[in-house]
Design a protein around this nucleic acid. Sequence first.
RNA 1: GCCCGGGUGGCGAAAUGGUAGACGCUGGGGACUUAAAAUCCCCUGCCUGAAAAGGCAUGUGGGUUCGAGCCCCACCCCGGGCACCA
Length: 856
Amino acid sequence: MATKSTDYNFHEIEPHWQSFWEENRSFRATNESAKPKYYVLDMFPYPSGAGLHIGHPEGYTATDIIARYKRAKGFNVLHPIGWDAFGLPAEQHAVKTGTHPATNTAANIVNFKRQIKALGFSYDWERELATTDADYFRWTQWIFLQLFQRGLAYVDERPVWWCPELRTVLANEEIVDGKSEVGGFPVERRNLRQWVLRITAYAERLLADLKDVDWPESTKRMQEAWIGRSEGAEILFELENKALGPLKIFTTRPDTLFGCSYMVLAPEHPLVETLTTPDNQSAVDAYKKKAAAKSDLERTDLAKDKSGVFSGAFAINPANGAHVPIWIADYVLMGYGTGAIMAVPAHDERDFEFAQRYSLPIPQVIASPEGETKLPYTGDGTLINSPGYDGMAWPDAKKKITADLAARDVGKPTVNYKLRDWLFSRQRYWGEPFPIVWVSEGDYAKVKAAGTRALPVEAVTFASGGQKFFALPLPAGALPLELPEVQSYLPSGNGESPLANVTAWLEIWFNNETGAAVPASQPRPAGDAWLRARRETNTMPQWAGSCWYYLRFLDPQNPGAFASPEALKYWGVPDLYVGGAEHAVLHLLYARFWHKVLFDLGVVPQAEPFKKLFHQGIILGEDGEKMSKSRGNVVNPDTIIASHGTDTLRLYLMFLGPLEAMKPWSMKQIEGVHRFLQKVWRECIAADGGVNAKISATAIEPAELTKLLHETIKKVGDDIEALRFNTAISQMMIFSNALQKTPVVSRASMLAFVQLLAPFAPHLAEDLWERLGEKPSVQHAPWPKFDPARLTATELKLVFQVDGKHRGDQLVRVGLTREEALALAKANPRVAPHFEGKAIRRIVFVPGKILNIVTQ
RNA sequence: GCCCGGGUGGCGAAAUGGUAGACGCUGGGGACUUAAAAUCCCCUGCCUGAAAAGGCAUGUGGGUUCGAGCCCCACCCCGGGCACCA
């Protein structure tokens, strides 16, 4: 039943239809359907305490329009939503208040859900999930175990960013300008035991497969740059002290080998200690100490001011036997390549700067084609001063020299990536626990010998207190491994998570066959399967849950698998994925990595998770600045829904400008959009609440109106497909303006128009649809078709130009010839004077468009 | 420094190489009304002009073309990303 109001009462209409959809389960997607499928996905939100931001409904409205449009086009549409619910804010709140983060998270979800429901999105709520649900994260843990068993997860003691204020470790990407991204607190280096995922093993494929996805170019470029592939060679330099073994360096320019005048080791390079001569020991030690104390910010800031220290040692250039000094400098990073370089100051800006500062020789080995060369020279050229290679173009020399070194066994072609392995653990409470226990070498050997467990080829171990521990996975049947209750959510402060304080959970007798556990304080249960074990205390980062949620939506209640093979086959991956550009690298790269691992396991049928990706733009405050509490320019969706209704909000968000553009909010403009909806209401509904008298089933409406309707059907459909919602709305406004001027309109035309509006303003459309005499719901009606024959006009406007300038125009019949057009131009009093008496040099005639008379 | 976007009226913006400014907002004038709101109609890039009309206009300067907001070159400004990765 439609509402009874006589005017456009969105306060009544919107909740009414929202309940209707809920009661009728209108947007449920079934996994059994003969229809073609369409999967449209939003980046699921983190349910923060602050509630929905206006940026959420922007992207969500866009996907909702697509979802509703595709349903009308006959697709079985999957449009789900869930909650990326693990996260630092809930944990910090727990630390402050002592309440369990789950309590706070649940309350935030309730609020988010209320807000999202008020927006009228056509989500299939029966597929709702949260990454914090045990039924969900058991599969996050399961996927982790697959990575573990394939040797893609390992443990490493490594320097990580520790934030004393947050009492936690942060990933590189969580640090901005040397401070924590959350809160802006200072960070420092600490060595801690970490889980690391071997994403670098997939670097090549993550790079290569970018060509197969329909993503914004800028995002692809960002991922390319992040992966940072470069081709070069590893070259071995003999040291003067041959006992120390060769020094291995990486270079992308082996062709400049003859220009090497010194070597540089990163301060953390293992050879620094052994090759430094006694005379230089104290200077080197001092330098190492200074470099270690520098934060990333300082290292970057000091980039223009290179520093280093001479080690006293010399290396021998394998090309010409030259003895070159070895320096220690922090402009060389231990984390990339081999942590050592050959310096070629004549052809590398950084080496040049360093050589100048320390008065090192700068021999030139590449000549520019112009002859005269200003150093450093990094452009194209040919080799000089390189006996045996002089005159060769540098790319050829690069290949030749690399091959020659390889033949002598002192070098080989190598590819390096900037991409580092993914630091995957956090010393926090509120995250997925690792399904791993640590056991002794002896127990591990027994388990391995039994051959009943899937273990990595190379055992994952770590050493502590003179003892070596071995990582043993929980059996899949023991998942999920849930978080224990804790006394305090405060991190232990020594770098371990609060879980380290829960002794009964931590120190256990572990049943290797079932995964069962008994506190170690109790007697060891009977049976060979019971081992003494200590649980892993790290938890997973927030990225883990968002790496694969798009797959769980396919089959969210499945108790036996993360999704059934049938569901994976039917739904596949999202056809469209919409979310913010801030996830261009991390989330989207991590998810691609996991997906490829699942693909290699044979459990998902395609190599890429997100075929088509789109980023919605940021909405600025009315003052044109970024929305923020401190500026007081934040727009709350609840407020707008109360004052104008969600149909107006949705329409306005889409009318603002191109979806991908950054654009300012405007309260004035929203009035215009609201007026449009009121106008549509008035064109359908009379003042008494009945159907507008100008609408009738038998009405013969003006032909231009019918033509405009067909144009509108075409444009709105095309624009929705291309995510150009702003111009689709413009076109509907043009049609409504025409409606208002027409004395009569056929019921069929009005219904078609209501259908076009339905994806944008679904509540209003449902009400009008029923009031016009149709059965709900409008979404079940097939999308209107346009008749191409109706689009062709009999008359067109022909523009006359003289020398490219617009001088007049005239309605002409279709199919006018060049001669007829010229005759019209000559007869046109506005046009003719501009070329009369001049020699016509050329006539350009584009039928139906333009006649250009060129006289010069 | 490098890599991406983007610069169009008073404002948000439209424009397969073919009438620049659709649509919306704002502003002005008018109709309806006792009045107001709402609604409807007309005007609204800049300059000259009473008007008709003409000239100038898409960040700047060049170029290609019968014709450029759109293509090419150089530069300026704004936004985003990366930043000693050898």
